[in-house]
């Protein structure tokens, strides 16, 4: 198997300061509110921890960058002791101040995109936002689902 490469990118506006948004995306008590059932994690670069779903699924996580209130990123979903570009997914939250609020840029990339930034088609083809609409009519049918 050659990895689980993928790329999801989103941008949303939040009517809160970057400091507040940073707290929400990085602190364990807030993580529990929007993602896992439990989070054991120190939001500092290099720290390793876990996010748990139910009683049985415990997923490893390593903080890559903790730069309040600008960027929080981590690698997750890997097996073994150390998260690398080849065995994990990289999640990045970039917080950009905007008119008293925050522009939150989210990306989750697999090793393919992360390891090959000079990929010829990276800008145009790697994003599902680009690719999905082009796969009509199959995607139209899927998108019509509630």
């Amino acid at each position: 198997m050659d990895g689980m490469s993928r790329s999801i990118e989103r941008e949303i506006r939040v009517e809160a300061s970057p400091e507040v948004v940073y707290e929400v995306v990085s602190s364990p008590e807030h993580l529990r509110e929007w993602w896992p059932d439990d989070a054991d994690l120190e939001p500092v670069a290099g720290a390793t921890g876990t996010v748990s779903f139910g009683d049985t699924l415990v997923v490893a996580l390593t903080v890559v960058e903790a730069d309040p209130p600008r960027r929080f990123s981590f690698r997750w979903d890997y097996e073994g002791e150390v998260a690398t570009a080849a065995n994990s997914l990289l999640v990045t939250f970039d917080l950009i101040p905007s008119d008293g609020g925050t522009l939150l840029r989210f990306a989750e990339t697999g090793y393919d995109e992360a390891a090959k930034p000079d990929e010829v088609y990276h800008d145009h083809v790697s994003g599902w936002d680009y690719f999905l609409p082009r796969l009509a009519p199959y995607v139209d049918r899927l998108a019509a689902r509630p």
Partner: peptide, 17 residues
């Protein structure tokens, strides 16, 4: 799934603010 999480992040942050 990530869209749902991001909406929750937005809601939580805006409530705190």
């Amino acid at each position: 799934a990530w869209d749902g999480r991001l909406q929750r992040i937005k809601r939580i942050a805006e409530t705190i603010q």
